[in-house]
Design a binder for these strands. Structure first.
Length: 478
RNA sequence: GUCCCUAUCGUCUAGAGGCCUAGGACACAGCCCUUUCAAGGCUGCAACACGGGUUCGAAUCCCGUUGGGGACGCCA
């Protein structure tokens, strides 16, 4: 019988869920779903000083928003300290680890020396040769110490990475790294390995920044006699300057994209394409298609720059794919959460104007912005548009023609108005476009909008006439 | 600095020795559609980092150089 695939996402709650972490989570999740495996969520909160509840909530909210549901957890490392303590005792007893009483000051000096000598810093093993009995006495007397792994200084450590192949590192440069800190808390390297084993993780899919740690982890697995999982180190997500994506590149929190009104479907699709591809022509993929087709073999090796423009495009594609009913529902939901009293408007009417603007908007925040002149009569007129179409000779008389025509019109729909406007265009010897633009600016304040007949229809006769009169009296050339 | 990873259009990528006069997508430009803007359609622009090998043949394999990234914490 084939083993059950078990993967995990193990963020440390020191900040929000950023897009790099989200992509790592996504790859794990896709792999689990594709393989019929289990996806475990583990919060690595052993750094008490930097971990916050706020961050935990943000991470969970981010995962929920993306629809990356986990099968187990969240497990908290801070609640599993007994396990690490037992493991620490065990590895100390076996002789694979030893207590180190070196002070931070001494280590700092060593580090500086290494830097001056232009060499990689590795701990000099001062405490490695300490007599176990003496070590035990000093510890019992309460002398602060850490636990270090005895790393063989001969030979090479080889990692078989599913994405990168064999990665070899000289053991001599690994150093006797720290397992537990002075305060007894496990380090990342230690807790991570203990937990992955304890939770039966079969595949560790994580960021490339962890690759240099992996030989250390392997050593730990060996010291405990544990079977190591398989590793896959996914490439980094980079900012436009090719450096690891960070705050200074702008929005890196996944929830920031939610708040801008990007669809989780689009975000998932976009993130999947950062370092993975299906073939030579497919860009649009639904969640289901992603699950159906995901494989570690098709993950790239090189880092990928986060390309906002492609996300915006994909967002549009996903919006259209949602269909009118669903996309308007999402838009209503978004606006309700962003200060619009949705209940104050007729639902049918609201859906109609949303439908008018949705394909002209890159995201829901922009959609809301584009809806402003429908939702309220208080809106700014764009100075440029006014200058170009209203504040010029003949604009006021033209608006008067509009006012007359609309006042007399039995309805403001396309069928009714178009023939009349064609006739007007003919009579005034003004091109259709030149006829429309001043009216558009008067009604919307801008020179780009949905079709004018749709705008008129949505606004209704009374509001339209008011706006035309206002424009004629206040915005046209005196 | 040391070690590790990496290298195809501006960007995301296809490409696992001949299918490559290198394909798709975003972006950009032009045209079409058109009441404006989007959307859509068509066209165009644009890349195998460099140098050596291996081979009848290399974007694909090997070596080196250069560029980029990462790690070097009692952070994760």
């Amino acid at each position: 019988m084939a083993e059950t695939i078990r993967v995990r996402f193990a963020p440390s709650p020191t900040g929000y869920l950023h897009v790099g972490g989200a992509r790592t989570a996504l790859f794990n999740w896709l792999f689990a779903r594709r393989q019929g495996g289990r996806f475990v969520l583990r919060i690595e909160d052993t750094d008490e000083a930097r971990s916050t509840d706020e961050a935990i909530n943000q991470i969970i909210e981010g995962l929920r928003w993306l629809g990356l549901d986990w099968d187990e957890g969240p497990h908290f490392q801070s609640k599993r300290l007994d396990l690490y303590r037992a493991a620490a005792d065990q590895i100390l007893e076996s002789g694979h680890a030893y207590r180190c009483f070196c002070t931070n000051e001494r280590l700092e000096t060593l580090r500086e020396e290494a830097k001056a000598a232009k060499k990689l810093f590795v701990y000099d093993r001062k405490c490695a040769s300490l007599d176990p009995a003496e070590s035990g006495r000093r510890a019992a007397a309460g002398e602060p110490h850490v636990l270090r792994l005895r790393v063989p200084d001969e030979g090479v450590a080889a990692v078989e990475d599913l994405i990168r192949g064999t990665v070899k590192v000289d053991r001599s440069q690994l150093g006797d790294f720290v397992l537990t800190r002075t305060d007894g808390m496990p380090t990342f390297n230690f807790a991570n390995v203990i937990d992955d084993h304890d939770m039966g993780i079969t595949h560790v899919i994580r960021g490339e920044d962890h690759l240099p740690n992996t030989p250390r982890h392997l050593l730990l697995y060996r010291a405990f006699g544990y079977e190591p999982p398989r590793f896959a180190h996914v490439p980094m997500i980079l900012g436009p300057d090719r450096a690891k994506l960070s705050k200074r590149h702008g929005a890196v929190s996944v929830l920031a994209y939610r708040d801008e009104g990007y669809l989780p479907e689009a975000m998932v699709n976009f993130l999947a394409l950062l370092g993975w591809s299906l073939d030579d022509k497919t860009d649009f993929l639904t969640r289901e298609q992603l699950i159906e087709n995901f494989s570690i073999e098709r993950i790239n090796k090189a880092g990928a720059i986060f390309n906002l423009e492609k996300l915006q495009w994909l967002n549009g594609v996903h919006f259209r794919a949602l269909g009118e009913a669903e996309s308007t529902r999402r838009a209503r939901e978004f606006m309700a959460a962003h200060g619009v009293n949705v209940e104050a408007y007729d639902h049918g009417w609201l859906d109609k104007i949303i439908a008018l603007q949705i394909e002209r908007s890159r995201n829901l925040a922009q959609l809301q912005q584009n809806l402003r002149y429908f939702l309220s009569d208080e809106f700014q007129h764009d100075e440029k548009a006014v200058a170009k179409h209203l504040r010029k000779e003949g604009a006021a008389p033209l608006l008067n023609e509009w006012i007359q025509l609309l006042s007399a019109a039995p309805a403001l729909d396309h069928e009714t108005l178009e023939p009349q406007l064609r006739a007007l265009s003919e009579r005034l010897q003004v091109s259709f476009s030149k006829l429309m633009q001043p009216c558009r600016v008067a009604l919307t304040g801008v020179d780009a909008s949905p079709g004018l007949f749709d705008v008129l229809d949505a606004l209704g006769k009374e509001r339209a006439l008011k706006r035309l009169a206002y424009a004629r009296d206040h915005l046209c050339k005196a």
